[in-house]
Design a protein around this nucleic acid. Structure first.
Lengths: 344, 344
DNA sequence: CTGTTGCGAGAAAGCGTTTTCTCGGTTCGT
DNA sequence: ACGAACCGAGAAAACGCTTTCTCGCAACAG
């Protein structure tokens, strides 16, 4: 007959009774403390096995002051980029026996801070992807979130590693690629207005314009998903640009789809580039020229940095900067004669 | 000057001291218990605010016997299907103030049971996607996992809702569609051998063969990802089939990509269908004919079922069956003259 | 004016662990 | 042979919270 504690689950007390020892001894045995008589240890183990005893992680967490869990805040679980970060993070953390708790902020920046705080309190550390949060708010909450790793954001606070992708450089590489193909009129289909990574891309484009005064770079309003790209067809055609730098691969795919519906050829009529190199980018038609970001690896790195923080290890490289790699595929090609600004 | 408890974080004791009351009273105030003098309550709230006190969730969980967290076990976080389930689950659960803990079993079935148990103990409930686990093992662990919701698996145990997609019907619909287009020689590019949902598809195909004896349905070994589809080109061509039912959209996309490389036209030479209707299915070239599963909604439903279990509510509909909807796009077309079994 | 009720808040018990403290019983050294 | 060092295991404290128990005090009825 199986004894049951108040909660109905088997607890350390049950196995203590069954083995005829104190619950302290059971705890010692379960934790591999060798200061216990082998014979008693065996009896305890037998009792534990028979009762299928499994320590309650909540009680354990309270006593140990750690949860073996980390949190991650993402703005949109539907976005392949964050899915990849989550995957890399989860797998790396799992290797070290940590689990991950997810918090999806649905792109609403006001939620990000609250979710971050809540998640942090339940966990031993936090990975924060908060592209919409203002710098001021970020600085304000960062101290209360330690141990913390930031993705694509930086802070002045000490001891907070930042993993940032050099979107500025990536977009310049893409623009440079289009110019080499003979394009002289480019358009940037921007991301969400307050997005941090969009800001980095804009800075990159400013640098590019300064270095290449002969090419025109137009700014078009956009967003971060398929539909944004699809809906931008008119604006793109109106711009008269022959090379389009989409905010990311999703937008690029939506745009290509829209252009295709209008009977336009990519890259024959218009070249399109994306950003991120999500897995599907190589399967679009035409395959998508983009800037590849080792994003799963970034998630993995996030764990390594966070682990160092949790273990209070010396961390020689607090944070790192990832250089996107130009991935030239079939969606970009030679410019045809300059287009005039008309609808197809 | 801020007081600090032993752990270094602000605790209920600190605000109790600051407000000049017992910690029991602080707890009452924080939990909206109205049996406390409004003036004292205000004092407590002021103290809490000043100290930026936030209750420690671990202590709270221990006292309340609940964590406000649910777990989900998925076989592969890189698979869009599970990403979608996770998304639907997470968003629905968040609406009710629950967070979700993820456990990725990496497709290794021996891990599934262990991860499930661990995750369950840390959470108030569990959603289990364990397509590779044997029926026997599933039955064995299910009782210890309650409250539990199963995805695409069923159990004889009572009180365990199952959310299953009718893959058998879906694959029959797809096969029927191809036959209507004049195809008489079909091939099924199967999923992982021990996959439960693959089994359902096979059953569906058996039923289909019985009902349509004039149609040949060949079985080809496969898997569940892009590469599987891509690598299956030879086998597909050897089969001489003109209509290919791929295990899922990923496999279908890989296959189409491979066929394209061989200079074959889809659907001109061969028709290809997928399964799931992942978001990218409508952006492939040609767009992919598939069986649409409302997968995000399934994740949401999983939460609703789990919530009912956690709240011990009456649940009139324990589990449900989802009928895939045929999504006819451009990757399927009229059969051309029967092909002979040769390489392209 | 006294006994009863009611109310508000502190004391204390629990939640399930880990870990320090303590102490009885050996063993060893002298 | 007696005290010191040691060792193993139980008792108890701690982790941070919620909740029951309890008690003092005030109000009210008789």
């Amino acid at each position: 007959m199986v004894r049951r504690s108040a909660t109905g689950r088997i607890g350390i007390a049950d196995v203590a009774v069954k083995a005829g020892v104190s619950h302290a001894t059971v705890s010692r045995v379960m934790n591999g403390n060798f200061t216990v008589d082998p014979e008693i240890a065996a009896r305890v183990r037998a009792a534990a096995a028979e009762l299928k005893y499994q320590p309650n992680p909540v009680g354990r967490s309270l006593a140990l002051g750690k949860t073996d869990t980390i949190g991650i805040v993402v703005p949109d679980l539907a976005n392949p980029t964050f899915q990849a970060i989550l995957r890399g993070l989860s797998r790396a953390a799992a290797q070290d026996g940590y689990r991950v708790l997810i918090a999806d902020s649905f792109e609403v920046s006001s939620e990000e801070a609250i979710l971050a705080g809540e998640a942090r309190r339940r966990c031993d550390g936090l990975v924060l992807c908060a592209p919409r949060m203002s710098d001021a708010e970020l600085e304000e909450i960062v101290p209360s979130l330690h141990p913390l790793v930031l993705i694509n954001r930086t802070t002045t606070a000490a001891g907070v590693p930042s993993l940032v992708v050099d979107y500025g450089q990536g977009v310049q590489d893409l623009a440079g690629h289009l110019v080499e193909l003979g394009h002289t009129r480019l358009a940037f289909l921007a991301g969400p207005p307050r997005s941090a990574s969009n800001g980095l891309r804009l800075e990159g484009l400013e640098a590019f314009k300064a270095a290449n005064p002969q090419v025109e770079v137009l700014m078009l309003e956009g967003g971060s998903d398929f539909d944004t790209g699809h809906d931008a067809v008119d604006a793109v055609l109106d711009s008269g640009a022959t090379g389009i730098l989409a905010f990311n691969d999703l937008v690029a795919m939506g745009l290509m789809s829209g252009l295709h519906e209008r009977g336009l050829d990519v890259p024959g009529d218009i070249s399109v580039t994306g950003f991120d190199d999500i897995p599907f980018a190589r399967y679009t038609t035409p395959t998508l020229t983009t800037a590849a970001v080792p994003i799963t690896e970034l998630g993995q790195q996030a764990w390594h940095q966070l682990r160092a923080l949790i273990r209070k290890e010396e961390n020689d490289a607090p944070g790192s900067r990832y250089q996107p790699r130009l991935e030239i595929r079939a969606s970009s090609g030679p410019a045809k004669a300059p287009r005039t600004a008309t609808h197809g």
